[in-house]
Amino acid sequence: MTATLNVYLRAYTPISKSQDEVVAAARTLDATDRVDDCEFTEWPATVSLDRDVEAVDVYETVTAWGDANDVDVSTPFRLHTRTNPMTDDRESVLHTPVVYLTLEYDGDLAGVAPCTLPDGTHVTAKAFLDALQDERDPYRALATGALVA
């Protein structure tokens, strides 16, 4: 089973200590072979939901995964509707998180962070990575089973 950790970072955002910690933890997971591959991607701060871009694809994929697993993935994302002043067309705009993680096994989504579990537990990106480093399941409360093979 091949584990891929995807780290999404908002472009043009000043780097904070927490971002540095997440990036360092993700690199450590890759270096210690806790994951088979670690990919870093910059995404825009905002994007129209009707665009065919990676940020929208990730949002739609994690939203479907969250619905199927009773996990709230919406907290780090924000949606709003705006009217284009030139055309008066209304569009839905997605605001991306500063840091977002997805974990895939053999190309299938197996986990995301940050998120909120069914029992109300909030899983941060750093806690998610720390659990993977310690070979623990960051979603102990989920009925879907352990993420760590």
Rank of each mutant, 00 (worst) to 15 (best):
V148R: 11
D108R: 15
H95D: 13
L49G: 00
V23A: 14
P14I: 06
D37F: 10
T144E: 13
A146C: 10
S74T: 07
P118W: 00
D36M: 01
L132A: 03
T144Q: 11
T96V: 06
T124P: 08
R78M: 11
G66W: 08
L9V: 14
F77T: 00
D70P: 01
V58L: 07
P114E: 09
P76W: 07
G107H: 07
D137F: 01
D72K: 13
A141T: 14
V73F: 09
V35N: 05
H95E: 14
P14C: 03
A31E: 11
H95P: 00
E60M: 04
T87D: 10
T124N: 06
V58A: 03
E135T: 12
K126D: 05
S16V: 05
E91N: 07
A127H: 13
S48A: 15
H95L: 08
D33W: 01
D52C: 03
I15W: 04
D50L: 05
H122Q: 09
Y100Q: 07
N6Q: 15
C38W: 02
Q19D: 04
L29M: 03
L147D: 05
D20S: 14
L103F: 13
D36Q: 05
D89Y: 14
D72H: 13
D88N: 15
D108A: 15
G111A: 06
E60C: 02
D88K: 15
A11H: 09
N6C: 10
V123I: 15
A55R: 04
H80Y: 15
P97H: 06
D72Q: 11
A31M: 06
N84W: 03
A113V: 02
A26P: 04
T102Y: 08
M1E: 06
N69I: 02
H95W: 10
T75D: 10
Q133H: 08
V148Y: 12
M1Y: 02
E42D: 13
D72I: 12
T75I: 13
A68I: 00
E42N: 13
Y105A: 10
L142H: 14
V98N: 12
T121C: 02
V56L: 07
K126M: 10
W65V: 04
T46V: 09
E54Q: 14
S18M: 07
Y12M: 04
D52E: 14
N6D: 12
R136Y: 06
P14S: 11
A143T: 15
D33I: 01
S48H: 10
V62E: 12
T41R: 14
I15R: 15
E39F: 03
T63W: 03
T13K: 14
V73R: 09
